[in-house]
Nucleic acid binder design. Structure first.
Length: 825
RNA sequence: GGGCGAGUGGCGGAAUGGUAUACGCGACGGACUUAAAAUCCGUUGGGAGUUAAUCCCGUGAGGGUUCGAGUCCCUCCUCGCCCACCA
């Protein structure tokens, strides 16, 4: 008998599968469609590590299962090539980004084929391919035309040596001069203002929030998105100010608690607030204020967080509370965010923790306007600081005509009053920000706009797309913070639509530009007339199951939804949501118990090693067996050895398969149908880990048999197929004695076997007997037994008689059919 | 500080409110071997009891609902992830 040789088994079949593309998805097939999507990797680094493979294996097993169940399955794969990871990798290795991604794509694809992934490679995409990013650029132009892509001056990370840096290139550096350093070479990094393209995602905030109700994401993902969008309802309230030159200035604040307006004892505004310049002019401490603004602009967000709140009073101006005309001081304060709400707040120290902290520091008055229920019962003669702060709702006091109202009632009444006097109204604000959409970098989609002599902007004509990157040797970020493209004169200098000299925009798009819509391109990847044909989109979209990184729950998933909604508004896609269902995958930890990562290759397992040593089937089965998809697991080589033994044992079972087709009455007939039923349910529920254990159990049973009926063996091979595609193909071809390869004969194009329901239930069942909640006996009875019959049987049971001397002892007898007998005595 | 999730053997984990610890790893004992590895067989939550029958305890802690709770509810503790001066 020949021994299981995983190499021999696995080298044989993948050539046939991929040369003939047996896993192809058929447009407009009459079968029901199933679009199963796993996030595309970005090809940087030498290999996809086992952590990636864990992310893909469960979706892939599911895709095979659905194919065998008669669905027309689309399970595509592609490469998110543009962006920083590839550029960094190229710099480190002294090659160009183009070379870096080409090398990585080749390796990654080979790796996935080695794993046997059932991917329709005819639909492979590469976001850095001009044929692809032509459409990314085209969509950007549409966004720009609709005013959703616009130029803004924004603070970005900047370093004297390296120029503009992305968030992920910047590390904390508590001892350094700026508190931040570049990941590369450790140069100090600070924030500088630069012109940036931004996407107006907040314009879609409300729809992004509401439409969460129409999709099937798990609650954690939805909550993550809701928090990210961060809708707050409250009011905008206008405070009047006269500056030292007696000009009237209005300061608008945002608050979620209009009911506390009588407790305002100061106003605080962001140092970046647009009215600041006017406000501080000719004030007594103008110089001090200007110094403060200068200092605050240099702070990183992290530093702002750690530091105590600071502020400087604008001496000489006061703000007037519109309801009680009380005049309060105005502070510049760095704890006020310029780009949230109105960039200004009303300070209510009695009822807001941050305001309280600030007021304490600067000796500002604390006026209580909401009764603190905790203080009610006590005589608060020793009014210590803790008791002064109360952030909950309650009954108003010290609030003129609004006294004794509850917070909710008072909010309504106060808003009504503010509206009457024209000093405020309801307002909604969101945490979600405009997203910076440009990078002063080489390796990205060029922004397809040009600047005319007169300073206006126009897009390059659609027929001239794609606008490709010039091939240059020196693609490093520049020290001045300009894009490396700035120096490529022959590329930058162009002509506008009237034939006048003009300059190209030299920014490129961020890493995540291409991944906003890639799932739509898989549907029609070769189309050069449009990004995807509407009829095909109608057939395939939306995505039925979307698997990806837990870290993408907010950013990527929101951006993609925004982008798709925009396409929907243009009438170019058939639905307003791209993904019907989403599950986030867990993490595989390396030998150092930290996440496997490209940046730490020494702790990341190359699947090539496990495929060489144990085979792709064992590797796949191991990854599926680890546990639930969304959990985190440590790498353990013994686990994969166990899966190798499983494959070997299955292979060795071949010799027991009898020539008899029929399994009727065979000892394992019922076990087979039960196993099949269990695994079918588990695969539907994506519980691949228990699916593998069902296979293990059944194999343990088969090993004990003298012979295995051929129909059960055939069914078992089909059950095995999604998990171990190579071995199952081998066994299937063998049992059928196929001489030559024919696509239709592949196990992977066979139907999923049917179980017979009657054979999954046993004639006899073991029923546990609980007496007063404690398990006292187990009896075997006919599964169809009646309550009266089982009562009789239970009373006769010796172990029960130990506790019950006569039937009268039984106060309550309960039989839950097929489950349990529960007796109360 | 906010949000979400999770706490079950030595370890990864299993369990529509119904026999807790399936399946796998590890460990221990045995077989084979000159020996080791590999392989095979057996044992494996804790305690009492004779290695038996049997009994007690046991799913982070404490309460509750229920005939019955790992599972549902309340309070608390711990850990993980995400967000974080968001007014």
């Amino acid at each position: 008998m020949d021994k299981y040789n995983h190499k021999k088994v696995e080298d044989n079949w993948k050539k046939h599968w991929f040369d003939n593309n047996i896993y192809k998805a058929v447009d407009f097939s009459p079968k029901p469609k199933k679009y199963i999507l796993a996030e595309l990797p970005y090809p940087s680094g030498k290999f996809l590590h086992l952590g990636h493979m864990m992310r893909y294996t469960v979706p892939e097993i599911y895709s095979r299962f659905m194919r065998m169940r008669g669905y027309n399955v689309l399970f595509p794969m592609g490469w998110d090539c543009f962006g920083l990871p590839a550029e960094t990798y190229a710099i480190k290795n002294g090659i160009t980004p183009q070379e870096a991604v080409a090398e990585a794509m080749t390796n990654f694809k080979a790796s996935m084929q080695d794993m046997g992934y059932a991917i329709d490679w005819a639909r492979e995409i590469d976001t850095s391919d001009p044929k692809y990013f032509k459409w990314t650029q085209w969509m950007f132009i549409e966004l720009w035309k609709k005013g959703l892509a616009k130029v803004k001056v924004m603070p970005v990370w900047w370093c004297k040596e390296l120029g503009v840096l992305a968030d992920e290139e910047v590390l904390p550096d508590p001892d350094g001069p700026t508190g931040k350093k570049a990941e590369r070479d450790g140069h100090p990094v600070e924030k500088r203002l630069f012109k940036q393209w931004v996407l107006d995602i907040p314009a879609y905030a409300d729809r992004l929030l509401k439409d969460l109700d129409t999709v099937d994401y798990n609650e954690a993902v939805k909550e993550g998105q809701r928090n990210w969008i961060g809708k707050s309802e409250g009011a905008k309230i206008i405070f009047r100010v006269k500056n030292v030159e007696e000009k009237e200035i209005q300061l608008e604040v945002f608050t979620t608690r209009p009911d506390t307006i009588f407790g305002v004892t100061f106003l605080a505004i962001s140092p970046q607030h647009p009215a600041v310049e006017l406000l501080i002019k000719n004030t007594k401490n103008e110089k001090q204020l200007k110094d403060y603004i200068e200092k605050a602009s240099g702070l990183s967000d992290l530093e702002k967080q750690k530091k105590d709140k600071t502020g400087v009073e604008i001496i000489g101006v006061l703000a007037e509370n519109p309801l009680n005309w009380r005049r309060v001081p105005i502070f510049l304060a760095d704890y006020i965010l310029a780009d949230y709400g109105t960039g200004a707040i009303m300070g209510v120290p009695a009822h807001d923790g941050r305001d309280y902290e600030f007021a304490t520091k600067y000796n500002l008055e604390v006026v209580e306007v909401i009764n603190n229920p905790k203080n009610n019962q006590e005589n608060n003669d020793n009014a210590d600081s803790e008791k002064l702060l109360y952030e909950g709702k309650g009954v108003l006091k010290n609030s003129d005509s609004f006294n004794n109202m509850g917070s909710d009632e008072a909010t309504k009444a106060i808003l009504q009053k503010l509206k009457e006097i024209g000093a405020g109204e309801e307002a909604v604000t969101y945490k979600i920000r405009e997203q910076i959409f440009s990078r002063q970098r080489y390796w990205g989609e060029p922004i397809p706009l040009i600047y005319k002599k007169d300073g206006t902007i126009e897009n390059i004509p659609i027929e001239q797309l794609p606008l490709e990157l010039p091939i240059i040797k020196d693609f490093y970020a520049t020290k001045e913070g300009e894009s490396p493209l700035e120096g490529v004169g022959e590329w930058v200098n162009t002509t506008d639509s009237q034939g006048n000299a003009a300059k190209r925009d030299t920014d490129t798009m961020p890493t995540w530009a291409g991944s906003n819509w890639y799932y739509a391109r898989y549907i029609d990847p070769k189309n050069d007339k449009e990004f995807a044909n509407m009829d095909k989109l109608k057939y395939w979209m939306p995505v039925d199951k979307y698997f990806g990184d837990a870290g993408h729950t907010t950013a990527h998933l929101i951006y993609a939804r925004f982008w798709y909604k925009f396409l929907f508004d243009l009438g170019l896609v058939p639905s307003s949501e791209p993904f019907n269902w989403r599950m986030s995958g867990g993490i595989l930890l390396g030998a150092d118990n930290r996440k496997m990562s490209k940046s730490r290759p020494e702790y990341s397992v190359d699947p090539k090693d496990t495929i060489d040593n144990y085979g792709a089937d064992a590797t796949r089965t191991f990854l599926a067996f680890l546990g639930p998809y969304s959990e985190t697991f440590p790498w353990n080589e013994n686990g994969i050895k166990a899966c190798y033994r499983l494959m070997r044992d299955i292979y060795n079972l071949r010799v027991k398969v009898s020539n008899d087709i029929g399994s009727k009455g065979h000892a394992i007939e019922k076990d087979y149908h039960k196993t099949l039923k269990n695994i079918t349910g588990m695969l539907e529920d994506l519980k691949m880990n228990t699916g593998v254990s069902e296979i293990m159990k059944f194999v343990n049973l088969l090993k004990k048999q003298k012979d295995i009926p051929q129909d059960i063996w055939r069914g078992f091979i089909a059950i095995l197929a999604p998990f171990a595609p190579f071995l199952s193909e081998q066994l299937w071809q063998e049992i059928n004695n196929y001489a030559d390869w024919i696509d239709e004969n592949s196990i992977h194009l066979q139907e999923w076997p049917q179980y017979i329901e009657e054979l999954t239930v046993d004639a006899m069942v073991n029923i546990p007997i609980q007496i007063n909640g404690k398990l006292r006996a187990v009896i075997a009875v006919k599964s169809e037994i009646s309550e009266a019959e089982i009562r009789e049987a239970v009373i006769l049971e010796d172990k029960v008689r130990k506790y019950i001397t006569s039937p009268e002892d039984i106060k309550n007898f309960r039989y839950v059919k097929g489950k349990v007998v529960s007796i109360t005595i």
